[in-house]
């Protein structure tokens, strides 16, 4: 029992963020395109040292849970990216540009976790046809520019249900 506690403490002492360390190790191996033991060792040293050295720079620690929800969110986002790619290219090629309805819309947000907001902005900006402008601080609304707006409520519903609810589930503070 005590031994297990000691091991746990040792791991949290030297590997404060295991996901980040794993990502760094993978980055090193991919850059060198090898699986030799020497590179594994060097990459592990990097993966342990870099999070420890940069720990004071990180203002908060994100909690990530629910891999199934992450997978669902990203597969939906991938489908949406491909679909809206074809929509945008169809508009560019075939539509007359003067009847295009480009608008700024506002989406009320409930998500407040900073990491979740960062992921949301990445997903929205990666989708062609929508660009994140900013969050209005007094009302906590998201200002968004849409390339060709048909129905404002459809956009609000989609963003809230497809993106925001999974993100709130993934980055919820209670699951620690």
């Amino acid at each position: 029992m005590i031994r297990r506690l000691m091991t746990h403490r040792l791991i949290t002492r030297w590997l404060p963020s295991p996901l980040l360390s794993l990502a760094l190790l993978l980055l090193w191996l991919m850059l060198n395109q090898t699986l030799q033991p020497a590179h594994l060792l060097l990459g592990s040293a990097l993966a342990i040292a870099a999070p420890l050295l940069t720990a004071p720079l990180r203002p908060f620690k994100a909690r990530i849970g629910k891999p199934a929800a992450i997978l669902r969110l990203f597969s939906w986002a991938l489908l949406e990216v491909i679909r809206s790619c074809f929509n945008v290219s169809r508009i560019i090629l075939f539509r007359k540009t003067d009847n295009l309805n480009s608008q700024f819309i506002k989406v009320p947000l409930d998500l407040s976790d900073p990491t979740g907001l960062a992921v949301l902005s990445c997903l929205i900006n990666c989708t062609p046809g929508t660009v994140w402008v900013e969050i209005l601080q007094d009302t906590h609304e998201l200002s968004l520019h849409v390339f060709d707006l048909h129905d404002e409520n459809w956009w609000i519903d989609t963003i809230k249900q497809r993106y925001e609810n999974p993100l709130m589930a993934i980055f919820s503070r209670e699951t620690s």
């Binding site: 491909i82 790619c85 945008v88 290219s89 560019i92 540009t97 520019h145 390339f147």
Partner: peptide
């Protein structure tokens, strides 16, 4: 799209498909 669309706020959507797809 970057060349053809009339306003900046529309032109910013053109390169997005280049970058992603």
């Amino acid at each position: 799209g970057l060349l053809r669309l009339p306003h900046f706020y529309q032109r910013i959507h053109g390169p997005a498909i280049t970058i992603t797809f």
